[in-house]
């Protein structure tokens, strides 16, 4: 499997810096779980963070600081850390960060119908951006729409095609204000995506506008 559509450098850097909303962090972490190239790129941005830490000024620690830290490590050394769900569940479709948010594998996703055979499940993140899993039947189109903000779509299963190209498992589409598109799921297989938006989408045409409240986007 080769990933062809990657994260942008500003997203990687902002993820490394910790400046993104939780939902965006989730899709970045999920893409990196499937993509060595972006994992390596993240490593270099983390290295920039390390260099920033090294070169930034230092502020003296409190007098009893070392003692409290040593006390803490002595007290904690025997404690066993809780393992996240992802350490126990392996899923063929959902990488570990999604297993954590779903609370299990694909069979644990609580889908709700969004009309036209499309199903969605909104994942619990902070309100600044929304993460949803989308289930799009083979050959189905998501209505033509533009964006008020950022929209990121990562393919987990199957594939879709739109004006931006062909997106298979691991590929991520970064769509911003200037992109109008009509993603169509590949005819050969139902498509499952993780989609993240940081502002409502704007649909064209009447029917999709009616569908919008159902999609909740």
């Amino acid at each position: 499997m080769t990933v062809k559509h990657h994260l942008t450098d500003d997203l990687l850097m902002a993820y490394s810096a910790g400046d993104l909303p939780e939902a965006v962090n989730l899709i970045v972490a999920t893409h990196i779980s499937l993509c060595d190239e972006c994992r390596a790129a993240l490593g270099s941005y983390d290295a920039v963070g390390g260099a920033v830490l090294d070169t930034c000024a230092s502020v003296e620690m409190a007098q009893n600081s070392l003692k409290s830290v040593l006390d803490m490590i002595h007290a904690q050394d025997s404690q066993v850390q809780d393992k996240p769900v992802s350490a126990m569940v392996q899923d063929d479709v959902l990488p570990a960060p999604l297993v954590d948010y779903v609370g299990g594998g694909l069979e644990n996703v609580r889908w709700r119908s969004a009309g036209m055979g499309v199903k969605q499940a909104i994942l619990p993140t902070s309100k600044h951006a929304t993460a949803r899993l989308l289930y799009i039947p083979a050959g189905t189109a998501i209505p033509d729409h533009g964006h008020h903000g950022l929209e990121l779509t990562l393919v987990l299963k199957g594939a879709f095609q739109d004006e931006g190209g062909y997106f298979g498992r691991g590929d991520i589409e970064v769509a911003s204000e200037d992109l109008n598109h009509t993603p169509v799921a590949d005819i050969s297989e139902d498509c499952i995506c993780l989609a993240v938006t940081d502002a409502p989408l704007k649909f064209k045409g009447l029917v999709p506008r009616i569908a919008q409240p159902f999609l909740g986007i």
Binding site: G18, P21, E22, L26, V28, T30, R39, P95, P97
Partner: peptide
Amino acid sequence: RKQRRPEPED
């Protein structure tokens, strides 16, 4: 930010 930080799969 009081939010979780999703990390890539190890």
